[in-house]
Design a protein around this nucleic acid. Structure first.
Lengths: 123, 123
DNA sequence: TCGAATCGCTTACAGCTGTAATCGAAAGGG
DNA sequence: CCCTTTCGATTACAGCTGTAAGCGATTCGA
């Protein structure tokens, strides 16, 4: 369950996660094309690669495929987060918070949300 | 100032940051070799690539080079952190905290450290 | 002085990434 | 029935990554 997904592939995963229902390649491309300006061919390549590595699955619908995520966004994101914090901060989150705070990467709303989370955790 | 450094290259950067003084290729390899089991040749390749992309600089010392970081760890780490939070959490840190909390990625000590940081921030 | 060790540089090579074009098969429109 | 569109699959190709080996030059030890 330790899938590596590249930046471009992630874009496609986000489209699938965001749709909430299976998509054809063309539909996925529509959802992405605007932002990224990719050709349909590129989206198809991404879908093939994602299918090959088990990140999406597809069901046949006549001659085409309906693609849906094979992994949950939370699972993927949790994995990547742990990996990231491990790689740069020795597995501790606090130095990451410190670094972002020091560079003004946090606004008041975000800070309040984190405090609320932590308070919740301790109860 | 938007350097991409690969995993293997980062290992070498950590050795240089950790040393606190310039290192020869052989010294860097010594500091890394144990963990990673790389050959000297591999470390040399990493140093060349890092030099080519401006992440390390080198001074000649007779026939060899003394390598030192050309960027500060905090700067690099801050950049990567912002990029990461942007990529997966829309630029907000709180959902990352939530995710890690939900998977037991936080221990009490880490939580306390974060709370202290945030309290500091508001003063 | 002469061979061994060491230096940085160049080359190697497979796998991953970004970004498609092309192809043969099938389906759908007229 | 044929032409165009559309599908997934295959192929392309350069740049990055991980992991070195080899090379010519230099230096160092005997």
């Amino acid at each position: 369950m330790d899938l590596r997904i590249s930046d471009a592939e992630l874009e496609v995963m986000e489209a699938l996660w965001g749709a909430g229902h299976p998509l054809t390649a063309a539909e996925a491309a529509d959802r992405i094309g605007a932002e990224r300006g990719w050709s349909l061919a590129t989206v198809k390549t991404m879908l093939s690669r994602l299918a090959a590595k088990g990140a999406v699955k597809h069901r046949e619908d006549g001659r085409r495929f309906l693609y849906s995520p094979a992994i949950k966004r939370e699972a993927y994101v949790g994995n990547e987060s742990r990996r990231f914090v491990e790689r740069l901060f020795g597995g501790r989150l606090s130095p990451l918070v410190a670094r972002l705070a020091e560079e003004d990467g946090l606004d008041d709303e975000d800070i309040a949300a984190i405090e609320a989370l932590l308070k919740e955790l301790k109860s």
